[in-house]
């Protein structure tokens, strides 16, 4: 008899060199959660939060890694990068504040809604950041 693990884990390397591929990991996660039969509202919350984070990693940090852990009571998303870090987290959390350049805005992003949106769609969000070293964002959606 094969025992199912208590926790399902997925790892993604997010390529920071190609903006057109940004969001690929989130699409995969959305499909996996659908296959696993999670409710539509849970899937939407997880995938939007992760997508925003993935886009942020590509725009600001030249990519990074994304870990998704599916536990019995929660889905955990951990996004880590070695980018420039966030000097003022409170400022970055304000809707409309963005440091994205014009070349990103013409691609449809950089409206300063990424971090606020990640918080809005998750039940828990923690930002660990150090200027010059990088950022790790942990988000949880409770099941």
């Amino acid at each position: 008899m094969i025992e199912m693990p208590d926790t399902l884990k997925f790892h993604f390397d997010v390529d920071g060199s190609d903006f057109s591929s940004a969001g690929e990991a989130s699409v995969v996660v959305k499909k996996k959660l659908r296959q696993l039969g999670y409710p539509a509202d849970i899937i939407r919350k997880v995938s939007i939060a992760m997508y925003e984070g993935e886009i942020n990693m590509v725009i600001h940090a030249n990519g990074g890694t994304a870990e998704v852990e599916i536990h019995e009571n929660e889905i955990v998303i951990i996004l880590s990068d070695h980018g420039p870090g966030i000097p003022d987290v409170n400022l970055a959390m304000q809707e409309g504040y963005s440091t994205a350049r014009e070349n990103i805005r013409v691609l449809g992003f950089g409206a300063g809604m990424g971090l606020p949106n990640m918080k809005k769609y998750t039940d828990y969000m923690k930002i660990d950041t150090k200027v010059g070293e990088g950022t790790t964002i942990t988000m949880k959606v409770y099941l």
Binding site: G23, E24, K30, A40, R44, Y51, I55, G108, F109
Partner: peptide, 15 residues
């Protein structure tokens, strides 16, 4: 009027 893959991914995320 924006044309890039993120348009489709964004639409997909929003169902």
């Amino acid at each position: 009027g924006l044309v890039n893959p993120q348009v489709i991914r964004t639409a997909s995320m929003m169902d």
